[in-house]
């Protein structure tokens, strides 16, 4: 997984509330499209016109936001389905960081698994950043995960473990596999404590 340190990039405003993962990536793209090919299907219902051409009204199609790597989002971005393809699609179109007052819970966890940083900020602070992202005179945003800041002076909270995972590009499966002896110990004790859990296909 790519390490995340300091990201200086164009931020695009995406003010809609309750953006669900169905609208980030349609179910038809979750049934066999390779991970690497999902980027072009992100937000496809609003990103393209019926004839397949780019919809000029879609924010990421506008010249100044092309190549944006930060999305400033409305409330509860990523609600709904657990499909991780939503994060893969966003990452596939170059998004590395999302800023919102709140996120859908499963989506939020999925972001960390893929090197995408979801930043939760108080509504007023997120709204100020939304205005800044919409201001043609404003420059790129700077997100510093090490210092936990946006644009130098806005602090954000993120769990120490998740921060370290992103900073170092760590793989959670590898970390847990290294603790396999603890899992084995737990299961050995649990077989005594709750045998019906472990021997349920009993004759």
């Amino acid at each position: 997984m790519d390490k995340f340190a300091v990201l200086t990039a164009v931020a695009a405003p995406f003010p809609r509330d309750n953006v669900d993962t169905d609208s980030i990536i349609r179910i038809e793209r979750c049934t066999g499209t390779p991970k690497e090919a999902l980027g072009r299907y992100a937000f496809e219902m609003v990103r393209y016109l019926p004839d397949g051409a780019d919809n000029p009204d879609f924010v990421l199609n506008q010249p100044r936001y092309r190549g944006a790597q930060i999305l400033v989002c409305g409330e509860f971005f990523g609600t709904g389905s657990s499909r991780e393809m939503a994060v893969w699609a966003l990452a596939g179109m170059g998004i590395r960081c999302l800023i919102a007052p709140s996120f859908g819970q499963i989506f939020y966890g999925n972001c960390f698994q893929n090197g995408v940083l979801p930043i939760t900020l108080p509504p007023a602070t997120a709204a100020a950043l939304m205005r800044q992202a919409s201001d043609p005179a404003a420059g790129p945003f700077s997100v510093d995960l090490e210092r936990q800041t946006v644009n130098g002076d806005i602090g954000f909270e993120i769990g120490a473990r998740r921060r370290k995972m992103l900073l170092e590009g760590l793989d959670e499966i590898a970390l847990t596999l290294a603790m396999d002896a603890k899992i084995a110990d737990y299961q050995a004790a649990d077989r005594e404590r709750r045998p019906w859990i472990h021997f349920f296909r009993n004759p």
Binding site: S82, E84, I106, G109, N110, Q113, I173, T176, I183
Partner: peptide, 21 residues
Amino acid sequence: AWGIGTSELTHVLATQAIVQQ
């Protein structure tokens, strides 16, 4: 009981455990 994404699912297959806040 809760729903998980592909990465967490892969983690559960490999480790029978899940990391959670």
